[in-house]
Amino acid sequence: MIITSKIVKYIIHFILLLIGLIWIFPFIWMVLGSFRSNTDFIVSGNPIPSELNWDNYTRAWVDANFSGYFVNTVIMTVATVAIVVLLCALTGYALGRVDFPGKKTILAIVVGIMFIPKGYTIIPLYELVDQLGLTNSLFGIILAESSGAHTLFVLLFTSYFATLPKEMEEAAIMDGCGFVRTFFSVMLPLAKPIIATTVIMQFIWTWSSFLVPTVLTISKPELRTLAVGMQNFVGQYSTDWAGMAAGATISLLPVLIVFILMQRYFIEGVAGAIKQ
């Protein structure tokens, strides 16, 4: 569709910018808040800081150990995203391109799982990871974070792989590629948009995931992640609001960067799958 009238265009831009400003106002407020002093934060409703107070960032980065949490979070998120992408791509490929007995049942299960009431306690998960001897290790957190049905991602991969023309696969087989090599060297690289979608969405979820990392690191606080570290600002009798705002700003940035870098593929990814 094309919008032709110039005046209409300007009006649309004006509206989009105005709403956009209101849209991100809470984040502007947060960044401003990260420069305010604590008392100022609680008592005054005026979001503009009276002076630039970098202390909050030092406090978050050094005292609240955000430096250490940052590395943990990056490792955990990157590993989880990689595992989830691989798992979902494999499943999606099998479901999308091969006819095998039980395929329909598996598809039905994948969809059905989305509506199954989730577990409300973390204790069974902890017991499992504990049995594997993986509590208090980043690997245990990564494994627990990678679990789940990933219904949306599996379906995206399935429908995307199903649309790829048969000839591509045949040509690869002619070249002497087996099933596995065809997948890794020919088909998977074609699925970039879906990979980008999975990366972005899983990245967002894992990055801010809270309960699993908290409980799985109960006796090794140095393995904590940013979202968990945010709790360091909340005390029983007092909360370090300004430090929290600084911490929130620090943890928002990486996700924002990932999104900006990948957003083009992201939309394509969902679009490609929906064409089906």
Partner: peptide, 15 residues
């Protein structure tokens, strides 16, 4: 322990 202290205690006691 922060706000999730109760969860931590529950898990630790149970295990």
């Amino acid at each position: 322990l922060g706000a999730s202290g109760n969860q931590q205690y529950q898990t630790a006691i149970k295990n």
